[in-house]
Simulated scan of single mutants.
Amino acid sequence: MTPPATRTWSLRGHTPVVRVRDRSRRRLSVAALACYKAAESSRLIYRPCPHTRPDGRKSFSWKDYRDLIQTVHQQLDGPIVLVWDNLSPHLTAGMRRCIADRDRLTVFQLPPYALDLNPVEGIRSVLRRTTTAHRAFAGPDDLIAAVRRGLRRLQYRHDVLDGCLTGTRLRRRPSMTPSHIQDQ
């Protein structure tokens, strides 16, 4: 993630100076799942991937996504319907085998360039407009800290997470009322 280019201001006659150390090719990848379960608050579960990894990769592999799905499954304790974009690790043979081995996992692949159907894109947009907007980061660690802080705040904003789902025009399945509540 890189902050968006923006305009700045200064006093008339004084040219603003923004010091940037070095344009680096380092980046931060974040895998996030917006979780919606009937009759429960929405959740955001994420994993950042720093710019340096022991295996030399610069982004997530299919194994990282597999581990994230396993974590989500343990936290949600139920079947998962996963809506994915066409990111290459999502389409690998290893990921397909992993999906086939899990009977409580159903995956729907979004069509190419369907950003408006992915709730996580709305979350990314909120993050870019709030936490990372109008900021020059001192280094990769500063960027990672800011993104983690922003995602941690979003985890507790269920209204924002629900709004990201509403923005896709998708909706939750209506919750079923338990029988013990109907009797009262």
Rank of each mutant, 00 (worst) to 15 (best):
T8H: 02
W9V: 12
T15G: 02
V17N: 07
V18A: 07
R19A: 08
D22T: 15
D22M: 03
A34V: 10
K37S: 12
R43K: 15
R47A: 05
H51Y: 14
T52Y: 08
R53C: 05
D55K: 04
R57I: 03
K58W: 01
S59A: 08
D64P: 00
D67V: 00
L68K: 00
L68R: 00
L68E: 10
T71S: 10
H73I: 00
Q74M: 08
Q74V: 07
G78N: 01
P79R: 11
V83Y: 02
V83W: 01
P89V: 07
P89K: 03
R96S: 13
R96V: 05
R96W: 01
C98K: 04
I99E: 08
R102M: 12
L110D: 00
P111S: 10
P112W: 05
Y113V: 03
N118S: 13
P119D: 02
E121H: 05
E121L: 05
G122W: 01
G122S: 09
G122M: 12
V126S: 04
V126M: 01
V126C: 14
L127N: 01
R128F: 06
T131R: 08
H134P: 01
F137I: 09
F137A: 04
F137G: 06
D141C: 05
L143A: 04
L143S: 01
A146K: 07
A146I: 04
A146D: 02
G150S: 07
R153E: 14
Q155E: 13
H158T: 09
R169Y: 06
L170I: 04
S175Q: 14
M176K: 15
I181Q: 10
D183Y: 07
